Amino acid sequence: MEIDFMDDGHGSGWDDLEDDLALEGHCPQVLFQPNLAMVPLPSNLGLERCQELGIGGLVRQEITLREGQANDMLHAIRVHLADKAVLFRTTIRPAKSQVATTWAWSQVHLVERVISLNSTIYKKCQAQLSNLRAVQLLDKYWELVKNDLKATSAVTDPNA
């Protein structure tokens, strides 16, 4: 892939590269921005375009990959919800001082951010499965609702 660089205003050009790099604060800016680029997967191209290109096999492969990704995210969400319940039981309830309570709640908020990230990835994965029209899998992988992301302390109590 060819990458073009923009001149950021320092130096006279790329002819004197050593002089340009010696200038303080000189960093060439890359025109290609990977965080904004769309990966040409079948779910992004559309099924009709994939049929035109003759890459129907890639659709099945992406469905398999998305199914694995959904399983991984659901597992991670379950583990982190259990983690959150354990944190409530072992750190928040027994906290006796404001420092301990603040520290415990910061741990809970960290776990909540991870759960939020995993649920966002799961939702995007489910949307891509919808784009691929994988109806059988959409019956299996339901949409997450807010109540699905709540932790109960019953997880930590073996007698419950």
Rank of each mutant, 00 (worst) to 15 (best):
E2L: 07
I3S: 02
M6S: 11
D7N: 03
D8P: 01
G9F: 04
G9T: 13
G9Q: 01
H10P: 00
S12R: 09
G13D: 10
D15H: 11
D15Y: 00
D16F: 02
L17N: 02
E18K: 05
E18N: 01
D20P: 00
L21D: 11
A22L: 06
L23D: 13
G25C: 04
G25N: 10
H26M: 08
C27H: 15
Q29Y: 01
Q29D: 15
V30G: 02
L31H: 04
L31C: 12
F32V: 14
F32L: 14
Q33M: 10
Q33K: 13
P34V: 14
N35M: 14
N35K: 15
L36H: 08
A37R: 09
A37Q: 15
M38F: 07
V39N: 01
V39H: 12
P40D: 03
P40I: 02
L41R: 11
N44V: 08
R49I: 07
R49Y: 06
Q51V: 09
E52T: 02
L53C: 02
G54F: 03
I55S: 02
I55R: 05
G56P: 02
G56C: 04
G57S: 15
L58I: 01
V59R: 08
Q61C: 12
Q61I: 05
E62W: 05
T64Q: 14
L65R: 15
R66I: 04
R66M: 15
N71Q: 15
D72H: 04
M73Q: 14
M73H: 12
I77T: 04
V79C: 04
V79E: 13
H80G: 06
L81Y: 01
L81K: 03
L81W: 02
K84A: 00
K84C: 01
A85Y: 13
L87Y: 11
R89G: 04
R89H: 10
T90Q: 14
T90G: 00
R93D: 06
R93L: 07
P94W: 13
S97N: 10
Q98H: 07
V99W: 05
V99T: 14
T101G: 05
T102S: 06
T102K: 13
T102L: 06
S106Q: 15
S106T: 15
S106L: 15
Q107T: 04
Q107I: 02
V108I: 13
V108S: 12
H109A: 05
L110T: 06
L110G: 13
V111S: 03
V111L: 01
V111N: 00
V111G: 02
E112G: 00
E112D: 15
R113L: 13
I115M: 12
I115R: 00
S119A: 11
T120H: 14
T120P: 00
Y122T: 06
K123M: 08
K123W: 02
K124E: 09
K124Q: 14
Q128N: 09
S130L: 11
A134V: 03
A134R: 07
V135A: 12
Q136W: 01
L137T: 08
L137R: 01
L138V: 13
L138N: 08
L138E: 06
K140R: 15
W142V: 04
W142A: 14
W142F: 09
E143Y: 08
K146M: 07
K146L: 09
K146S: 12
N147C: 07
N147I: 04
D148S: 09
L149A: 02
L149T: 07
L149K: 00
K150P: 03
A151G: 08
V155F: 08
D157W: 05
